[in-house]
């Protein structure tokens, strides 16, 4: 199994630690996979290309969905959270969305 990062340039600069947030959600993700497809829904505050705030939660969805849009300084997003990709895999998805939208 492979997961491309999609971008070879450096990652989005973060002022907060995205990994900590994902560790906090991990339990909900692994519990969720038994009932449906876990997704992370949330919003990130992106100012001048830097991510300065992040609020996230886990929701279940029937099918894999990915959606993001930008409104002012905030990027709102829903991304699939696949446990087999680990914390790092989910981070890479999140980083890509914020890189594209931010």
């Amino acid at each position: 199994m492979t997961a491309e990062t999609g971008r070879s340039a450096g990652s989005t600069p973060w002022d907060i630690d995205p990994f900590e947030e994902l560790y906090r959600l991990w339990k909900a993700i692994t519990e969720g996979i038994q009932l449906g497809m876990p997704h992370i829904v949330g919003r990130a505050r992106v100012e001048e290309g830097r991510v300065s705030g992040l609020e996230m939660n886990v929701i279940l969805h029937e099918t894999e969905t990915e959606l993001s849009f930008k409104d002012g300084d905030y990027v709102y997003f829903i991304i699939p959270a696949k446990p087999e990709e680990g914390i790092e895999g989910i981070y890479v998805r999140l980083d890509k969305i914020l890189g594209d939208r931010g």
Partner: peptide, 18 residues
């Protein structure tokens, strides 16, 4: 430093999961 990990991941590829 989480950003050094982020930097590494941006130049990496997942090759195994299990």
């Amino acid at each position: 430093n989480p950003m050094s990990v982020a930097e590494f991941l941006s130049k990496s590829q997942m090759v195994h999961s299990g």
